[in-house]
Structure formats: C-alpha cells, structure tokens
Amino acid sequence: MYGAETTAPIDMTRTWAPEVPAFREHVERSLLAAARAPDLASTIQRHRFHGSARDKQAAADWLSKRLGAPPTPTRLLVTGGTQNTLVVLFSRLAAEGAAIAAEKLTYAAIGQLAMLGRIRVLPVDIDEDGMCDDSLEALCKAHNLAAVYINPTGHNPTTSMMSLRRRQSLVRVARKYALPIIEDDVHGLITKNAPPPLASIAPDLTWYLMSVSKCLGIGLRTAYLIAPSDDSLADLLRPIPSVSSWFVPGLSAAIITYLIESGAASQIVGEISKEIAARQDIAQEMLGHLGVMHTNKSSLHVWIDLPSPWTAEPFIRAARLNGVSLRHPRVFATPGVNVEHNIRASLIAPTTHEDLRRGLSALADLLVSRT
C-alpha cells in the first residue's frame, strides 16, 4: 500500500495534453516570433475578436486534417475555448426552459453549462458504439429538442469510438427532425484511424468544435468553431457583437498560428500520440488481463468496469487509502442517470511512467481483492 500519510496521492482524475519532448522549444520559438511581430502591441492591447484572417486560414488548414478539406474561413471562428463557446451555442440555439440531448454519460461540464443557460439536458442511451440512434429518435418524438451534443470520437468518459455506420444513422435522425448537431471533436487529432466527423457527413446540420486542449495545451484557452453555413454564423453573432468572454486571447491565437504555419503543431501532435500510446501500453500491461478496461488505445484515460461487490464510492475511498486520487463517475452523468459501477482513470495526470505504473498497480490490486 502507498500510504497517503507519507506520500502525495497519484492523481488519476483529469486529462490534458501530456508534456512531450521539444514542446518547450517550439513554444519558446512561437513566443519569440510573437514578441518580434510588428503588431505585438495590438496583439496584447486589443481584441483579437474571433481570429484574424491569418488565424482563420491557419485554422482551416489545421482542421482539414480531420475534415478532409479546409472549411470555408467565413464559417469559422477562433474562440476562447470549448466551454465559452458552448455557453453561447446553448443560449442561442435553445431558449430558456428548452431541452437539448446528450449522451447519458458525457463531458462533465455539459450539465453545468446548461444550468447557466437554464436549459434541460435529456439523456440519450449509449452502447459500445456511442450514442444510440433509436434512443435519440425516441427523444425527438417525445420532445421538441433544440440541439443534440455529441462526442463521437474518443467518447468521454467511456472511450468508445463511434463507427461510420452509427454516425450516418444519427445524421439521418437529426436530418429527419431538423435537429442541430453540436459535435465535440476534442480528441479528433490525437485519435488513430478515427472515422470522419459528423461535420463532414452533415456539414449543413453540424456546429463543429475542436479545442486545442488535448492536442496542444489547455492553457492556450482556444477552440475552433465551424458553423453549418455563413448565414447561421451571422445569426449566431448578430445579437452579441460585444460579448468578449468567448473571444480568443490574442497571444494564444498568435502562438497557435505560428505553431501551425511552422509545422511545429503537427510535430507536437505526433509526439503526444506517441506518449499516449506508451501510456496505453502500460495500462494494457497492468490492467488488460483483468478484462475490466475499456479503451480505444488513443484515449487519455481508461474506463473501468468495477467488479461486484465494488461500487464507485467505496472504490474511490479505498484507492485514496492506497495513494490514488479518482473522480466519482457521477460527474459525467446527465440528470436522472445513475452510474456506480464504473471509474474513469486518467493515464496522463500521473507525472511519470513510474507514477502511472504505481497508480495502476494499486487499482489492479483493489480490483482483484474485491473488498
């Protein structure tokens, strides 16, 4: 046992882009380029709004890696992060008291963001292929949904990878009911062999979101939003031109644009993918033989089935006594959904591979002991 009294617990709660070789060097170069740019004062002292023409062109080139072709810059915004963007999307697509749909287990912030907009989140059933199209259709028949939020690629928290067939089925349902899709593709660029985004299947229905939090760095507070059309983007922006809370930070935009244009961003993503693969190999070594682990092998975490008689709360307490910090899975549940027999364990939060091995070893011991 790793006594919490003598050593700090190994954090296995949160996920972010892992630190990789040469990252510091690439960022230092981008900072130096920004410092030497003739528009430095403007970058720091004025709004960047939703990105300069250069920012948007770099973003379009970057996003083409997932979308298959560069999106039209007139449909693209550079924003101050996923959550800020979702607040705006929820408030503009859904009137107060309206309902949106989401996977019954979903990104932990969705319920909180919906609460800020005074809208309801209705749960859609999920299986090993992600959101179930028949469950979404049942909700569409029973409710006048304002939108559906979907995380199809490297689903958080279950790690499922939605097949192309399921994506096409969900699009058919959304099109039948004229239902806007909000697609969160945060893991798209770090996921190997991912099917095409919903936005490439139904661009006219989909609000596509790609944050740099997992593929570059969460501290940059930047995401890209692609609207279904020029008109829909204009409608979104028209009543809120002075709401700056979701504007992209100027320095972040300058850093990211330099990283993309120089090729450094692609190198960083490649190194991040290698580090994730190495940590996934460790997870397979430590937990794979137990038959309780779900992963798509590109995910920043694993999703663990707790064997009976374990449930979440006592398992988390026992893990803490053995030197490991975990989050309760209820944070991923939509209202009315109970989740007690699974745990998400971050593979990235532990600082070193040795820490990761120690943390997973402690969890494996508990899973085997079942007491």
Results as ranks from 00 to 15, higher is better:
residue 302 V to A: 03
residue 149 Y to I: 05
residue 221 R to P: 07
residue 286 M to G: 00
residue 226 I to G: 00
residue 332 F to D: 01
residue 79 T to P: 04
residue 354 E to C: 12
residue 329 P to T: 05
residue 179 L to A: 08
residue 251 L to P: 14
residue 79 T to V: 08
residue 204 D to R: 12
residue 365 D to T: 11
residue 158 T to C: 12
residue 192 K to R: 08
residue 355 D to G: 11
residue 248 V to I: 11
residue 52 S to W: 04
residue 154 G to N: 05
residue 147 A to I: 02
residue 246 W to N: 13
residue 326 L to T: 02
residue 136 L to I: 06
residue 354 E to N: 13
residue 297 K to R: 03
residue 50 H to Y: 05
residue 212 V to Q: 12
residue 363 L to R: 04
residue 19 E to Y: 15
residue 309 P to E: 06
residue 303 W to G: 00
residue 227 A to T: 01
residue 78 V to Q: 01
residue 345 A to W: 01
residue 10 I to T: 06
residue 208 Y to W: 15
residue 135 S to F: 06
residue 196 P to R: 13
residue 205 L to H: 08
residue 125 D to A: 15
residue 62 W to A: 09
residue 137 E to M: 11
residue 289 H to C: 12
residue 185 D to Q: 06
residue 281 D to I: 09
residue 61 D to I: 10
residue 364 A to V: 10
residue 233 L to S: 00
residue 64 S to L: 06
residue 150 I to D: 06
residue 310 W to E: 08
residue 341 H to Y: 09
residue 90 F to K: 02
residue 149 Y to D: 05
residue 331 V to Y: 12
residue 227 A to D: 00
residue 95 A to G: 07
residue 36 R to M: 11
residue 85 T to G: 09
residue 168 Q to V: 13
residue 87 V to T: 14
residue 145 L to F: 15
residue 4 A to S: 08
residue 58 A to I: 09
residue 290 L to A: 01
residue 192 K to Q: 13
residue 230 D to H: 06
residue 246 W to D: 07
residue 339 V to P: 07
residue 311 T to C: 08
residue 251 L to S: 14
residue 225 L to P: 00
residue 349 A to C: 10
residue 362 A to D: 07
residue 335 P to A: 07
residue 90 F to C: 04
residue 121 V to L: 06
residue 132 C to T: 13
residue 198 L to W: 09
residue 4 A to H: 07
residue 298 S to R: 02
residue 187 H to F: 10
residue 326 L to D: 02
residue 228 P to Y: 00
residue 257 T to C: 09
residue 63 L to S: 10
residue 363 L to T: 08
residue 121 V to W: 12
residue 100 I to Y: 04
residue 153 T to L: 11
residue 6 T to V: 15
residue 221 R to V: 09
residue 153 T to M: 12
residue 29 R to V: 12
residue 183 E to M: 08
residue 4 A to W: 06
residue 146 A to T: 14
residue 243 V to H: 03
residue 67 L to R: 01
residue 34 A to H: 04
residue 152 P to V: 10
residue 147 A to M: 08
residue 9 P to I: 00
residue 147 A to R: 12
residue 4 A to T: 05
residue 87 V to C: 07
residue 217 G to Y: 03
residue 193 N to I: 00
residue 316 I to H: 09
residue 44 I to M: 14
residue 170 L to H: 05
residue 98 A to P: 02
residue 79 T to K: 03
residue 359 G to L: 13
residue 18 P to K: 03
residue 248 V to N: 09
residue 96 E to T: 09
